[in-house]
Computed example of a mutant assay.
Amino acid sequence: MNDMERICLFPGTFDPITLGHIDVVERAVSMFDKLIIGVGINSTKQPMFSVEQRVGWIGEIFSHDKRIEVMGYEGLTVDICHKLKAQYILRGIRYIADFEYEKAIADMNRMLAPDVETVFLTCSPAYSTISSTLVRDVIRNGGNARLFLPPQVRY
């Protein structure tokens, strides 16, 4: 691996990955040599879908683009960045509330790992109302979540 390679980690639970997440990945990938989608295992969250399902779906969605990789991970995001030699963390922003929450995390990450930069990318307006939380509610209540999901996500 080239030390000058721009590697970015896009961490999240992606439970499930939505069209909004895909929008952010597709728009961000050209900024980096490698974009790693990190499916985080969060002990405080009870996921609807297994890590294996989520990693599988994401791998299938982006299989056509060799710049994009996917992996599950546990622990501090900045520790995973160091392990992967990722200099950037990508975060998608929908609203001001997202920015305030994400900035607090970015500030903490900067204190823990000053060599890792957080990059914020706003989602396209068409996807600003889509969240995995809302999609899970639609699924739990028997609604048609297909409007918000890529076809690879089967539930």
Rank of each mutant, 00 (worst) to 15 (best):
I7F: 03
A145I: 07
F14P: 02
V153L: 09
G59H: 08
D79R: 10
Y95A: 13
L90N: 11
A113W: 03
H64N: 14
D107T: 14
V119F: 14
Q53H: 13
D33F: 00
M71E: 15
V51L: 07
L84D: 06
D79T: 08
H64L: 08
G20F: 00
S131Y: 08
E102N: 07
Y127H: 12
Y101N: 11
E60T: 14
F14N: 06
F10I: 02
S132Y: 05
V135K: 10
K45N: 06
A106S: 14
P114Q: 13
Q152E: 14
G56E: 06
C123E: 04
Y101K: 13
G40W: 00
D115G: 03
T129N: 08
G40C: 07
L149P: 04
G142N: 02
D137F: 13
E69L: 15
S50F: 03
K85H: 15
D3H: 12
E74K: 15
I89A: 08
S128M: 13
A86S: 04
Q46E: 13
M4R: 11
F14G: 02
N144G: 00
P151D: 01
E69C: 15
L121F: 04
R154L: 03
V135Q: 10
I22C: 12
V55H: 11
M71H: 10
I93H: 11
H21E: 07
P114W: 08
S131A: 09
L112C: 05
Q87I: 00
R94P: 07
D98F: 06
T133K: 11
R136S: 09
T122H: 09
F10M: 07
S128H: 05
D65T: 12
I17W: 02
T129D: 04
M48V: 05
Y101H: 15
G38K: 04
R91K: 15
I80K: 15
F99V: 08
I68K: 10
D115S: 08
S30C: 10
D65A: 14
V51A: 13
V153R: 05
S132F: 03
G75P: 10
E100S: 12
R6M: 04
A86D: 01
G40K: 02
W57D: 08
R6V: 00
I105P: 05
D98R: 05
D79S: 12
P47G: 05
S63H: 15
V119I: 15
